Simulated scan of single mutants.
Amino acid sequence: MLGCVIHGAGDLRVDELPAPEPGPGQALIAVRYGGVCGSDLHYWRHGGVGDFRLTEPMVLGHEVVGTVVGHGPGAAGPAPGTAVAVHPATPCGGCPECRDGRRNVCRDTRYLGSAARTPHVQGGFAARLAVPAEQVRPLPPGLPLERAALAEPLSVALHAVRRAGDVAGRHVLVTGAGPIGCLVVAAAKAAGAARVTVTDLLPKALEYASVAGADVLVRADDPDDPGWPDEVDTAVEASGVADGLDACLRRVRRGGVVVQLGMLPPGDSPFAGNLVVSREIELRGAFRFDAEFDDALALLARTPSLAGLVSAVVPVADAARAFALAADRAAACKVLLDFDSP
C-alpha cells in the first residue's frame, strides 16, 4: 500500500508499505481522505514541530477518515463498509491527568503521526490503518467523508473555545486564519459568540475565515485597519507567533481570557507579561482535545458550509504537490490527500 513517510526535513516520500492486519481489539480502516495539518508541514519543512523532533522515518497524518474493513480478535465496532472518522489519540488511562479527566494532556499518550515519543507513533497517511476499535466513530447521517475529514482540527478548535469559558453573547478575537483559526471561528459561533473578529496577514486566509462565519476581518500588518477592536472579551491565539499573542493580550479586556492555541516556535517566546498582571488577564493553554471529537462530527453534519474550507483534494501519489499547496497560505486552507485515487 502507499503511505506518506517523512524521513527528515524536506524529505517526504510516498513509499510502498506493508498492509497491516488488525490485532486484538483493533479495527482495520481503508483510509479515504487525510487532511494535511500544520504539524505535518512542520515535520516536512523543519524535521519537527515545537519541541518534538524526528529521529526516525515516520508515517505522517492524524486527520483521517475512511471505511471499516474488518476487526481483530475481541474487537467490536461499526460493521465493515461503515463510513468512519478516526480519533487519533490513545491515552494511557492510568496517569494523573487521565484519572482527572484531562486525557488530552496524558503524559504517556500515543497520537497518530507524532514524534513526541520514540519509537515515533506512525500516522494515518496510508491506504490501510489498524487502530484501537474504540477510536473509530461512525459518521452521522448525511455527513460525507470529505467534510468529515475536518473533524480532527475542528475538535482542536472546540477544545480551545471551551478552554476560554462561556463565550455566548461575547466578542471573540482570533489571531491567525489558517485552518485551525477558521475552525475556531466556527466553534465560537456555534458556542453563541455574538461577534468574532479575525486577523491575518493574507487576504486569502481572511476570505476563508469569512466562509467559517467571521464577522470582522482585519489585516494583522495594518495598525490602521478600521476593523481592529478597541477591546474584546476573549481572544484565541491561533497563529503560533509571538506577535499574535501580543495582539491578544493588548486587545482583551481587563479580566478577560486569552487562549494560546497555536504552537509557538521552540524555546522561549517574548510576551507582554506585565499585562497579565496589571489587567488580571487569564492566559490559558489549549492542547489537542478529547471528547470534543464526537461534537465536531455532529457540528460538521449540521454545517454544510464548512466544506468550503477544503481547498483541494490531491491523490496520495502526488503528495509533494499537496504539501506544497497546503504550505501556501496565500492559495489554500485545508488540503486533503485522497488514498482511493489513481
Rank of each mutant, 00 (worst) to 15 (best):
R288S: 14
A238Y: 11
R250W: 08
G240L: 08
A320P: 02
D215Q: 04
S305K: 12
L309Y: 02
P223E: 07
V236C: 09
L249R: 06
G273S: 12
V211I: 15
V258I: 10
S269N: 11
F289Y: 15
T199D: 06
G255R: 04
A317C: 08
K204A: 12
A320R: 15
A235I: 03
L249I: 07
R288W: 09
L283A: 06
P223M: 10
V232F: 04
T199V: 13
E237Y: 10
A286N: 07
L201Y: 04
S239V: 06
D225K: 03
P223L: 11
F289L: 08
T234Y: 02
P265V: 00
A331T: 13
F287C: 12
D295R: 13
L306F: 08
S239C: 15
A330R: 13
N274K: 02
V218P: 00
K204D: 07
A327I: 03
S305Q: 13
W228Y: 03
I281G: 07
D290W: 14
G244D: 11
R219P: 00
G227A: 05
L325E: 10
D328R: 11
G262W: 01
R253P: 00
L201I: 14
A247P: 07
S269Y: 07
A194Y: 02
V314N: 06
R321T: 14
C248R: 11
V316P: 02
R284T: 11
D295M: 03
V316D: 04
D290T: 11
V316Y: 06
T303G: 08
R251T: 15
S305R: 14
P266A: 05
E280Q: 14
G227T: 08
S311G: 01
